[in-house]
Design a protein around this nucleic acid. Structure first.
Lengths: 327, 327
DNA sequence: TTGAAAGCGCTAACAT
DNA sequence: ATGTTAGCGCTTTCAA
């Protein structure tokens, strides 16, 4: 391993000068610069980050703690985080923690052990682990108490889904809520229901507790059996939407003629399926990007305009909703 | 920040004893153990990993370099890597490097800078960056020259796809190859073609250069126009398979009655779509897990039975292929 | 503009 | 079974 000392000797300068050069911090003369640059290349020197971090108590590393990386929403979020931070010279440590709090604590510990710049997570741990001192930004599932957060406008999204579906002529609507751990899903569910209350359209509430296909399949069949007249389904996520499509078509019904479906998220695959899923778009990528930006700004003590960032949502028309009347 | 020194003082022992205790390396008496344990809890001490890594020149960190985390195959692989390593007390650093070699080099540098235990990647960099000294295991896209690798039996998979499709009565088969950068996809494409050559079934080759929906859509329409009699499509991936389903159904054809489709990968969503995609299963999770295990074994100088691990594939019957004749 | 020196928090050889 | 000591590779005052 080549060290700063060897570079210094070879270049005929002191360690400090080399240090100033590589961390671009302090004066270093033109001549020295050139010599150092040359020998760094020659010796293929790369500074040891552990040593640097030990000394400076900083580390350009941020943790990304996700409930389930195999849920298509989160890889896109991860991509947003990674691409922003990579650009700034930071790295991301990935933790797939499910709902396991012990695991979460392990990861948080490691992050403080390494002087990480911060953590991006879907779960606010500040009450559970108040001793952990680490800049934190919550993404997606942001409650009212969280200081830093990035989330999309779930109230607006839930309302919009209901509104659009009514405009498309839904008369017997099933509103489906997702797993209860996710506050964002509950918020939009409530917003949909609230909107429906202001109309004279008939609706029924249903609950899903899983992202697993077999589970959703069972739930979907229950819904379809219990609510025979259903002509519209508001799904809590695109995954659910796609599974509902499957069950509806399997029963020989037509989409959107017999039953229309609206999803939520606009994951990549939604455009691929048939019929392509009409859905409320929220940008997981942007969410990750904004969260990463916040961490970056905190770490560099920059002025932060907004600690809680609400992202817009919009409707994406595809093939699972009937045409809306103009108005 | 609480240090080992403070713990030592508070517990009335020396730094070394505390060090021995926390790294479970060397003797420490029963009494001392108890005192140390107590004060660690009391002071909420967590050892500084930068300092440890600086001293030991080791770091329980492994890099995971992926071409595109938003492609559903890779999150599952990442999950396999993460869950195995997390269990062993290692962490994973995620890099989404696309096909960008400069970015790849940056990540590799950081990994050596931090004394990482190794790197799991889809791209063998040993020829491009021969100076980088880092245990490496290649996943998925494993060439003949790579030392450590985990991959599935693409030849068998390609052959199996073709065989099954013929058994299901395919008479006019379109074999589609995926993006050329992926050696695995090319291998199974070739295997499919080779098998088809041994039959007297008519087939045509097609090429896809993208995982993007609009692109595949264009390619699919070209295929469907150029090869009017097509009754079977062998897709290079499930993503492609799902997109093909979309285009076929959009043309008012029936699946599998008019045209049958077989995918490759068995990504999560394939069971959700309608009709559910029949496909060749390969386990991205297992692939990640085995790769992580290899890195772990290398890092701990354990005996390694097989440096190149070939994973089995199997056919998953769902709804996009016609029933095969018994035989 | 540069160098000397101290020290970050930890481990490990050695001595006791 | 435990303590002393040196030092990992870097940064950062401080003095020159």
């Amino acid at each position: 391993m080549v060290t700063i000392k060897q570079v210094a000797q070879e270049a005929g300068v002191s360690k400090s000068t080399v240090s100033r050069y590589i961390s671009q911090n302090g004066y270093v003369g033109k001549e020295a610069q050139e010599k150092i640059e040359k020998t760094i290349k020659k010796l293929k020197f790369v500074p040891n980050l552990s040593a640097r971090s030990l000394k400076t108590k900083r580390n350009q590393l941020v943790g990304l703690l996700l409930p389930d990386i195999s849920n298509p929403f989160f890889p896109m979020l991860a991509k947003g985080v990674e691409e922003f931070l990579q650009e700034k010279g930071y790295r991301v440590m990935l933790g797939n923690i499910g709902e396991d709090e012990a695991l979460e604590e392990d990861y948080l510990k490691v992050l403080v052990q390494t002087n990480a710049a911060g953590v991006i997570t879907t779960h606010d741990f500040s009450e559970k682990f108040p001793d952990i001192d680490l800049p934190m930004v919550i993404v997606d599932r942001v409650g009212h108490k969280s200081n830093y957060g990035v989330f999309s406008n779930n109230e607006e999204g839930g309302k919009l889904a209901a509104k659009i579906v009514v405009e498309a002529g839904g008369k017997n609507i099933a509103v489906v809520s997702g797993p209860v751990t996710a506050i964002n899903i509950n918020n939009r569910f409530k917003a949909s229901v609230d909107f429906l209350e202001t109309t004279n359209v008939h609706y029924q509430k249903f609950y899903s507790n899983s992202y697993n296909f077999e589970d959703i399949q069972v739930e979907a069949n229950k819904l379809l059996n219990e609510f025979q007249e259903v002509d519209t389904i508001i799904a809590p996520s695109d995954i659910h939407g796609i599974a509902f499509i499957h069950e509806i078509l399997a029963r020989g019904k037509k989409i959107p003629e017999d039953i229309q479906v609206i999803g939520y998220d606009d994951i990549l695959i939604s455009q691929f399926v048939y019929p392509a899923l009409s859905t409320i778009h929220q940008s997981a990528y942007k969410m990750g990007e904004e969260a990463a930006k916040l961490i970056y700004e905190i770490d560099n003590e920059q002025h932060i305009e907004k600690k809680r960032i609400e992202l817009p949502i919009h409707y994406v028309e595809r093939e699972t909703l009937r045409k809306r009347k103009e108005h």
